[in-house]
């Protein structure tokens, strides 16, 4: 009994101080503006675009997860970012502006985040909010999140209704699809515009050959390497 107490009391104290610390931590807003484009031109649903390969292309779904935002990782690895996930839908304006809260620190020089959802979350069962499987970004027959969905049509696709469908995901060690991005930010900067250029993706893909990837594996992993290049900051 005595031995037990020795363990318990410091634990209580520790929890108490932690509560104090967290309640006093000051946060500030940091805005992420997402700007989906095709070759610099604003991306609109069902408009026509032409890729470098000469394919005419229309998009009807562009969705992806940005997760695990961090600032200046090296110096304060303990920092707690509030609101650090967003499921972006290029055609749903609400999702194009995300406000994170970071600890007050105007001197950060990098922002880092992941394109996709971690393996840990992909093995955690039914989650809520942006991670709710009802968002259509979760695979039914092989558990795990779909990190990126890009769907549309092009006369170049030899498929039914000329559709192309890219569902990029999978977290197995041999074929990971999560990609980490980081960008420099300036002192006192409290927002970034994240440009997502779909042309970068479609310029790399031969739609006659490759028009649907909907399972985890090598192909998905390669597509993730291409997809990550769509992102840049302005």
């Amino acid at each position: 009994m005595k031995g037990n107490l020795k363990v318990i009391s410091p634990l209580w104290l520790f929890m108490f101080f932690n509560m104090l610390l967290f309640s006093q931590q000051l946060n500030e807003d940091f805005k992420i503006k997402v700007s989906p484009v095709f070759n610099g031109e604003k991306l609109q649903k069902d408009d026509w675009y032409v890729s470098k390969k000469g394919d005419s292309i229309q998009f009807n779904k562009v969705k992806f997860y940005l997760t695990d935002f961090k600032f200046d990782l090296a110096e304060n690895s303990q920092q707690k970012i509030i609101n650090n996930t967003v499921l972006v839908d290029a055609f749903d304006k609400k999702t194009l502006l995300k406000t994170l809260q970071r600890p007050l620190n105007k001197k950060d020089s990098t922002i880092q985040f992941s394109l996709g959802v971690s393996g840990v979350l992909s093995e955690s069962g039914a989650l809520s909010g942006d991670f709710d499987p009802a968002n259509g970004m979760y695979w039914a027959w092989q558990s795990g999140y779909i990190n990126i969905k890009i769907e549309g049509m092009s006369p170049s696709c030899p498929t039914r209704k000329n559709k192309f469908t890219f569902h990029i995901g999978g977290f197995q060690k041999s074929y990971p699809t999560l990609r980490v991005l980081s960008f420099p930010i300036k002192e006192y900067q409290n927002e970034i515009t994240l440009v997502v250029d779909l042309a970068t993706f479609l310029n790399e893909i031969d739609l006659k050959e490759k028009h649907s990837v909907m399972i985890p594996g090598e192909k998905a992993s390669k597509l993730a390497d291409i997809a990550v290049n769509m992102f840049d900051i302005k």
């Binding site: 039914a126 499987p133 039914a140 027959w141 558990s143």
Partner: peptide, 16 residues
């Protein structure tokens, strides 16, 4: 073994 957690099991029959 394609489903890794009981909580997401029902998704498979619902959407098949």
């Amino acid at each position: 073994g394609g489903i890794n957690h009981l909580e997401v099991q029902a998704l498979a029959p619902l959407t098949s």
